[in-house]
Write a protein that binds this DNA or RNA. Structure first.
Lengths: 139, 139
DNA sequence: CTTGACCTTGGAGTATACTCCATGGGGTAG
DNA sequence: CTACCCCATGGAGTATACTCCAAGGTCAAG
């Protein structure tokens, strides 16, 4: 059992963030010292790693809270978790698509700007961004 | 020339959001009625579309403000404009990279969890998210 | 002339995910 | 005993991007 500072440095998260996660119902200390210090164990560290990795995968804290509920609830199937992962992946893919279109438009703009006398009114990025038919809404 | 409500419904943005964009220096009404009503034209609508599409591409409002400066400033396409465009492209590429990493991490999780009927205690997504060796921090 | 939809401004509130701070107690080294 | 760092709580602040509200002016229809 170790205190919050140890868990923080072990997981590269601040004490404040850990207390914030607790406040948000994402974690619970394994116990408390007589003085009221939060005490954590290896399972706490695993949980923090879970949260951090899920965040890197694009999950919000409230989505992660749901995943953590699934993780505990024994009736839930892996499929529930998988469905959420697939949904999140689709969201991300859609965003990547939109950004690739943007990047392409910028490439074009940069190429055309290479010849100095190009008037701004003809910038392709602007044309691309003003068109109604690009980048389908991402959520 | 039309009022804010018309522009709002035409662009599927709320009146409040339009006023907020004005406050943030993203748009300006084309004119004002004698009573002080904001009046907009087709160019305003194009500008809103520009903002919305750029947002879908992952730009923040302050980045969009910069893009709008590019769009309006400079009668000729100068080296400075090109530099800004290249900077924006690098930002986008970096964002695409980050999102690809997220997508890849999710792919890995989804692939590992092929058996949908698996109970949560054996969910490989959760196991994977608890492992310390996946999805190195991006950005 | 009244109704009701629409507009104005300024300011406060929401959600996300922290981050910092003040105040005060806890625990150990010298 | 005194440093000195660690921990506790509660509350405020940050950034982004809205969203809502109150109080009041504008305007066309009936």
């Amino acid at each position: 059992m170790f205190t919050i500072g140890k868990l923080a440095s072990q997981t590269s998260v601040s004490n404040d963030t850990l207390r914030y996660y607790e406040q948000e119902g994402l974690i619970e200390p394994a116990g408390k010292s007589p003085a009221g210090y939060r005490l954590y164990d290896e399972d706490s560290a695993r949980r923090i790693r879970f949260i951090k990795h899920a965040q890197l995968c694009g999950f919000t804290l409230s989505e992660i809270r749901e995943l953590l509920v699934l993780r505990v609830r024994d009736k839930a199937c892996c499929g529930d978790v998988r469905t959420r992962a697939i949904e999140k992946k689709l969201q991300i893919e859609s965003k990547i698509c939109a950004m690739k279109a943007m990047s392409k438009a910028l490439d074009q703009l940069i190429a055309e700007c290479a010849n100095e006398a190009q008037p701004v009114e003809e910038c392709t990025i602007i044309a691309a961004l003003e068109r109604a038919d690009i980048a389908p809404p991402v959520q």
